[in-house]
Amino acid sequence: MGAKTWMLVYSKGNPVEILMGSPALDRDATIALAKRLFVSERLEPLGDGDLSSTCPADDVLVVGCFPGLTVVAAKEFGIDYPSRLPAKFLEAMPGHGVYLHAMHSVVDWFAYAVWADGKLQRSLSLSPDSGVLEDIGERQSFEAPYWDGEHPAVDSEEDAADYPFVFHPLDMGEAALLSLFGYQLEGMIDPTHLQPESIPLMRFKRRKSWWRFGWRGK
C-alpha cells in the first residue's frame, strides 16, 4: 500500500513531546471541532482509527483532540501548494502552531508546511513528475542531509542522471514525520520512537447536508 498522509496538526507546544506523553483523547472536544470545521456536512461516527492511518478516503474524516494538540486528517490537506491552505483551517485554533504533512507513495509526492502565529514559516512540495511545486521559507534542519545528497534516491550514477532530485521525496517525508511528530510509518523503525498506533483518533463518515429553503409542499 505504501505510506500516505494528508493531515493537519495544531499544537501549543512541541508536538513530539506532547505525543510522547501519551495524551488522553478528548472525545467531546473532538466531536465539537469536527462539526465546527465541517459544518456543512453530516458526520456519522465510525470505529476509531489511530495516528498510523492519516490518509482517509474522501468520504471519511479523522480527528483527535488532546490537551495542547489536535490532529485532523481529511482530503482537503492533500494539496500540491500547502501555502494555499484555506484560512478557515489556519484560523481554527488560535494560539496553536499549525503543521501540514502530506505524501502519496503512488506518485512519490511529499509536501509539508509550518505556520507560527498565523504566518507561514516553511512550505515544500515536490514529486519526480512535477518537480518542485513549492519551496518557501527557510529549510528545516531535518531537510539538510537530503538536500546535501547524504540519502541518494538511486544507487548508480547512471540512474541518478535521470532522477530529478538527489533524494527520494518519500524518504524526506518520513524524516519530516520523525522530526515534527516523533514517529515514522516506513523504513527502519526505532522502538524508542513514538508508536503511532498508540495514539487513538476518531473517524467519521462524511455526508453532504441537503437543505432546502423557501419551499413548502403543496
Rank of each mutant, 00 (worst) to 15 (best):
E91D: 15
Y81L: 12
A29P: 02
F110K: 00
L25T: 11
P23G: 11
V106A: 15
Y81W: 03
A74W: 10
V39W: 09
H101Q: 11
C55R: 12
Y99A: 00
F110I: 01
Y99F: 15
M20C: 10
V98R: 04
G97V: 00
T54E: 07
G97K: 00
G68W: 02
D58E: 15
P23H: 07
A87K: 13
K88D: 13
S52D: 13
K75M: 10
D26S: 14
P45K: 04
T54L: 15
G49R: 05
P86Q: 11
E91I: 04
R27A: 09
A24W: 04
P56V: 10
L37C: 10
W109M: 05
V39F: 06
G95Y: 03
S53T: 11
H104S: 07
F77M: 06
Y112L: 02
D58Q: 13
M103G: 06
A74T: 03
I31K: 13
Y81Q: 12
S105P: 05
F110N: 01
Y81E: 09
T70D: 03
V62A: 09
R27H: 04
S53F: 12
V106P: 02
P56S: 11
F77D: 05
Y81H: 11
F89P: 10
P94C: 06
K75Q: 14
M103L: 15
D48M: 10
D58Y: 13
L25R: 05
D48L: 11
Y112Q: 04
S52H: 09
M93Q: 14
A29T: 02
P94S: 09
S83T: 07
Y112G: 03
G49L: 05
D26R: 07
P56I: 10
D59R: 09
L37M: 15
E41L: 14
H96W: 01
A32W: 00
V71R: 06
L100Q: 13
C55Y: 15
E91L: 11
M93D: 01
V39G: 00
M20F: 04
V60E: 14
G47T: 14
L25N: 04
L19S: 04
L69Y: 01
K35D: 09
D59L: 06
L85G: 06
F66P: 02
G78M: 12
L100R: 14
L69G: 02
M103T: 10
V63N: 02
F66Y: 15
S83F: 05
D58P: 03
S52W: 09
E44M: 08
C55K: 12
L69E: 00
H104V: 07
H101S: 09
R42S: 15
H104R: 08
L90F: 09
G95S: 01
A34T: 10
G97Y: 00
W109N: 00
R84P: 04
P94N: 06
D26K: 03
V107P: 00
I31M: 06
P45Q: 08
V98H: 05
D28L: 09
D50V: 02
G95R: 01
A32T: 07
W109E: 01
R84Y: 13
L33Q: 04
G47K: 13
D28W: 01
A73I: 03
H104C: 04
M103S: 10
D80L: 14
L85E: 10
G21N: 15
L43I: 13
K35S: 08
Y112M: 08
G49N: 08
